[in-house]
Design a protein around this nucleic acid. Structure first.
Lengths: 161, 161
DNA sequence: ATCCCCCTTTACGTTTACGTAAACTGGTGA
DNA sequence: TCACCAGTTTACGTAAACGTAAAGGGGGAT
């Protein structure tokens, strides 16, 4: 689901099965008992590529343990991934998501962390509303221009014929 | 003005004086009598950088005459620039704008050109509406998450104290 | 002559979120 | 043993729309 940003990317798989993801909460909900997941497990469950998961790790969003070379993701990683995807979904950049996750890790009892997240959410919502206003304006402009064009077409019915 | 796209760029001057620009029409309206403009004239009038104008030229959007090395823009270039900026403003890419302008140049009597433009405008409007729907969804999700967080904050009033 | 300003060209840098290719390792079934 | 699959790392490629730096030309004012 979604891009928000006018899809300039290939067009991904779009079948994001983790539709039930949730920005808050969900941080502790297990996944049908499982405790550890391979990279393949997560790609299937969340509909993202393995490359994406490694990329997120590279960016400090995930930090799976290792079994030699192989990555092993725990419930914590899974929850973080869910958070990342939902964050993206509502328009946060990975960097913004990382900041929030880092705050969560500091975990000063979770109070200021929650407050910061709340502020960010509201700020983001405000940004989105401004975006929507711009889009409305653009749509109106396009509609107006369309009418003008139609009028011109009506005036010049078949050109010179 | 505007971005539509979540401003990831520096934040431009924003003071776009060509507020009266128009997507259609305006193609022949002169500018207070002037017939020829320097690059500086246009940067001031439209609030874009000289670099931008050269960039547009490089992309085939403008084609000013030359006086030696100096660029001389005519009314036609001015009108095209206006069209480019308005196109951007409603979310067309420069490439899309160029296609429309090219069609205009073919000028087969302007009829099919107008029809194509009309179709593009409507298509674009449809895209924008889809975007708006996504934004609405994101806003709703953020609002929901915010409520959850507030609930959590209410439950954990002052942490351990 | 020197400063200063505007103009020019060429070309690399920026941002985001990965895709994709190359080359390699390790385990498994036939 | 060979093929094959899944995993790994490194590193370059992509898209959009310019910004910015480097290096130089031309002309006017002082």
């Amino acid at each position: 689901m979604s891009e928000l940003e006018p899809s300039r990317r290939p067009a991904e798989l779009q079948r994001r099965e983790a539709r039930d993801a949730d920005l808050v909460a969900g941080f502790d909900r297990g996944a049908a008992g499982r405790e550890v997941f391979t990279i393949r497990d997560l790609t299937k469950e969340f509909g993202v590529s393995a490359r994406t998961l490694r990329f997120y790790e590279e960016k400090g969003l995930l930090a799976p343990r290792r079994n030699g070379e192989q990555r092993l993701y725990g419930r914590r990683d899974r929850a973080r991934l869910r958070y990342v995807l939902m964050g993206k979904c509502v328009g946060f950049s990975l960097e913004e998501v990382r900041e929030m996750l880092d705050l969560y890790d500091l975990g000063d009892g979770q109070r200021t962390q929650l407050q910061v997240a709340l502020a960010k959410f509201q700020e983001r919502a405000a940004r989105l509303e401004r975006q929507r206003a711009e889009i409305d304006r653009a749509i109106a402009e396009l509609a107006r221009a369309s009418l003008e064009i139609q009028a011109m077409l009506a005036t010049r019915p078949k050109d010179e014929e």
